[in-house]
Nucleic acid binder design. Structure first.
Lengths: 341, 341
DNA sequence: CTGAAAGCGCTTACAG
DNA sequence: CTGAAAGCGCTTACAG
């Protein structure tokens, strides 16, 4: 049995608005698009007609005529579970959403594996289905994304790596010096055997933070061999911590490249009966909600993730308007001292 | 200085494909849309032209002509941090994405506050900008969403509550009997003072699970007064656990309405020096990645969240094809016994 | 400041 | 099985 179909009255068209306002379609269109050269009286009557009829422009017709899709792709080249598992992304996406709120653009979600987008996503991105793209997180193996901006306005979250990396728009923090600051905090605490749980080396955030850590240690004439890599996840952090304790059981502090990994690391420390910060001081990175979630509140390097998302959106909007924003926007970080270090 | 504009050659049109294939635009259109009444020879030559020209139909033109947007809204009436913080959603969304993968629909993300969608979202949903909607999570206060299906094909994740609730499509589990099973597991363990950390009472999952817990206890002639409410979050679970311990310090088991809350509860238990499961047995709900994330692996009521998302997508696709799927799809749950109970 | 007209790239009865 | 033609609902030079 077929489902009963509600007969919906057809949505009002520009034509009807124009008639109701006693003007031509062209003029009605002009007031809708905010053209300056319309008399105030006409603007008023068209607007009256619009709200009387509850008119909403037809997206498809508009797109066809002016060749804008009014859609933006949110590209997530990341395991879905990781994307959703990390409060950092929550914050960035919320910022993006906020940045787009006053615009007429909609956000098309494009999930894809960490390696490279699916053929469907690629076709979609290249097929003129969106006016621009926002890329959250990026791995160096992904050659497609690094050249995407040849085809489309694109803004990255984090400095892109690889081929076309040099001429891409992005918002980021100075990961290296942020890591130096964070590590310095541990040094100032008098710690001598400072390890790091680094992020993936196919991401600039992973590399730069590790280098910052090493640089701070070197300046303090401390060794830089205590290093383990994680994938920015909780369990990745735990695994890395286990490896560190196995190889260097006397480690007395660790600079961890993300709060989530720091949380994982603290789990392991607790298992082993090691106290934080007494036995091992921990400093995280992000200052995401994860930082204050456990029993021991995390000292961390704070980055303005929500603002970063917001700024990404704003930059893309500028590009779409034909403006020419700075290629890179580097935002401030700061150390938030809590319990763990 | 204006940014250099790359001059992109215009995308090929249907017209060009038709010319290349030596047929009319109508015929080319027919093969693209899989019309049966086209000769094999023509199908072949049109397809050849399509791949030669790397043709992709223009979405806007197509939408305008056939009055389909080929877009689906993913409505998230939930705090962004909660949405992203819960691996359960990750799994559902991934399932949805998977279910849509072979279709030509794109997913438009519509974040909104837990209370009710923003005016922009409402206008968007009602303005003919999408062909259908998928609603993940729903609170009873949201009158708009419960009547959304009067305007649009909609599939809910979880039985919707409220006004139009009765005639909505949804996929869910039998939360009540799943909770009975989970609580029974604790009873079978010999526990007598069984509390619950329930979900919000403005969500069916919250109510039904709490009722199932109570029902199992009643059948076993056990008291049902030990109850605290949480918001399905980690910290919500922790807070609820604290309240339970304060009021009923001798509690020896707790049925928790989500894994994330269970994790939060275990944090508190550990703080207090209570052993899980020796002192307090814990059973969660979801079997999300969160369940196996901590030191004590969570015993939990498993629900097929990924499949649920997939099924939501499939149901919506059926509706969009004009088919008439069952209004409700209730999926199976099972108890996964690990360490915590 | 305003209107008539062409055009955006498709789909779909309507004929044949 | 195929084509000519109308039409989907807008925008935008082009005139005036």
């Amino acid at each position: 049995m077929a489902s009963e179909r509600v007969v919906r009255k057809a949505a009002p068209t520009l034509e009807e608005v124009a008639t109701a306002a006693g003007v031509s379609r062209s003029t009605a269109s002009r007031v809708i698009n905010g053209s300056p050269q319309v008399s105030d009286a006409v603007v008023a009557s068209v607007n009256a007609a619009i709200s009387a009829l509850n008119y909403q422009p037809n997206r498809a017709a508009r797109s066809l005529a002016n060749r804008q899709t009014m859609a933006i792709a949110l590209v997530v080249p990341e395991e879905t579970t990781r994307f959703f598992g990390d409060p950092y992304f929550a914050s960035v996406v919320q910022g993006i959403y906020r940045g787009l709120e006053d615009s007429d653009y909609v956000l098309n979600l494009q999930l894809s594996a960490p390696v490279s987008p699916s053929p469907k996503t690629i076709r979609y991105l290249l097929g003129g289905n969106v006016d621009g793209a926002l890329v959250v997180s990026q791995h160096s193996g992904d050659h497609f994304l690094s050249t995407l901006s040849d085809a489309l306005p694109v803004v990255f979250n984090g400095r892109p790596l690889g081929a076309g990396g040099g001429h891409n728009y992005f918002v980021d923090v100075d990961n290296r010096s942020a890591a130096v600051k964070g590590t310095q905090h541990l040094i100032d605490l008098g710690r001598k055997r400072i390890a790091t749980i680094a992020g993936p080396i196919d991401m600039t955030a992973g590399i730069d933070r590790r280098n910052g850590w090493a640089s701070a240690l070197t300046s303090a004439h401390l060794p830089t061999d205590r290093i383990a890599y994680g994938d920015f996840s909780l369990t990745g952090g735990a695994d890395a911590m286990r490896r560190i304790l196995e190889e260097w059981p006397d480690t007395d502090a660790v600079f961890v490249a993300s709060d989530l990994m720091a949380l994982g690391a603290m789990t392991v420390l607790r298992e082993r009966g090691l106290k934080v910060p007494a036995d091992v001081a921990i400093i995280g990175f992000d200052d995401s909600p994860a930082a204050t979630t456990g029993d021991v509140k995390l000292t961390t390097v704070s980055q303005p993730s929500n603002e970063m998302g917001y700024t990404m959106a704003q930059m893309l909007l500028q590009l779409l308007r034909g403006e020419d924003p700075e290629r890179e926007c580097i935002m401030e970080t700061s150390i938030i001292v809590r319990d763990s270090a």
